[in-house]
Amino acid sequence: MKKILLVIVITCLTSSAYAGFSRKLSKAVEQKIQEGQAFINALEEKEESGSDWLLSRIRMLSYGLIKFEIPFVELKVMPMVEGRWVKKRPGRTLYRPDGV
């Protein structure tokens, strides 16, 4: 009986911890993406010069870092999230050497 209770308690604790972690993680990811989106939105009014090269993709990466310095080894844990924003250029097509 004690064993069953113990298993139930551990399962409850683990699942609630996981649910909490999962909520926090998705909130953190959402926040990072919103920060990136705000940054991108602020650029939309600008246009660039008539060059063959056009700023077409912006990638923003954020990461946390925990370092454990054990003798002779340094272990890094780096959870990261990257947002990629692509801009399409009406009237322009990407270059191909033979125009294909």
Partner: peptide
């Protein structure tokens, strides 16, 4: 023995369009 930190990386990419 334990360090923490955070970082940001921004990559701007210019693609080549028809001349």
């Amino acid at each position: 023995g334990i360090g923490i930190g955070n970082g940001n990386r921004l990559r701007l990419e210019w693609y080549r369009y028809q001349k």
